[in-house]
Design a protein around this nucleic acid. Sequence first.
DNA 1: TCTCACTTTGGACTAGTTCCAAAGTTGTCT
DNA 2: AGACAACTTTGGAACTAGTCCAAAGTGAGA
Lengths: 141, 141
Amino acid sequence: MSDLLERLRDRGWRLTAQRRVVAEVLGGEHVHLTADEVHARAGRLLPEISRATVYNTLGELVALGEVVEVTSDGRAKRYDPNARTAHHHLVCTRCHTIRDVPTDTAATALSPEASFGFSVSAIEITYRGLCPDCRTAPEEH
Amino acid sequence: MSDLLERLRDRGWRLTAQRRVVAEVLGGEHVHLTADEVHARAGRLLPEISRATVYNTLGELVALGEVVEVTSDGRAKRYDPNARTAHHHLVCTRCHTIRDVPTDTAATALSPEASFGFSVSAIEITYRGLCPDCRTAPEEH
DNA sequence: TCTCACTTTGGACTAGTTCCAAAGTTGTCT
DNA sequence: AGACAACTTTGGAACTAGTCCAAAGTGAGA
């Protein structure tokens, strides 16, 4: 993840302890954390980091195209650090875990008559279902 | 939309003025309204309807599979009354309008090795871009 | 080392939604 | 038609996720 920091500094990002920690948290695992989860994990490395800073930093990373925001349900947004390789998402309808799946697409483009005059700039595919853990876990309630 | 009420009554739905009005609002247009928009329109037909009831009713319609919840951005959920025919969505990244696009797919199924043990029950494709109005409209600010 | 533009901070604020207990209705049974 | 139980609605409080702000702090170039 330090190449990320590298790239960002080249783009004029001022390097601060907070930003370093957020980048580290995102790079550490390939799961898709919510802002709150990022804040919690960042707080273990830098206890006094504020929620506002985490939101700011995540927003900047998204604006710079280094991280992708994923809104899978109506709840908290999740942040996907794997913005450099195209992929789609597998979302658990029960525990809301998200996994990446590789894209082999080109098959999904919309024909001109089907696009109603929109200029389509991105295609997202979301596969919903139960993850292995939730398939075998007992019913809730 | 009265066949919707029909179906629901058969499933033991108690018929009330409020529910009738919400169903009517959803059936009236094929746009994808937010809960607040549904509340506003329902209020024109039945002024004293409460927000809680609109949320309750929408939630029930979703649970019964008559309406689909669409979370396109991190903001308000939208409700899609077109739950009976498979289709995907075209979302404007600027004004958040949503349009349906017909599905002709089947080409999008995930191979077993790519599904990481998930039991996939639904596939959603979201095409993002600018709608015709926003393509030509002047910049914001 | 100085300096200043860029960053961080915590707390107030907002939007969207959910929850709750009390009051009101619906459909059924007679 | 009348009574009743179960189901619904209601308004407001509460909650979650996120944004905004002015004041205090800090990185890095000169």
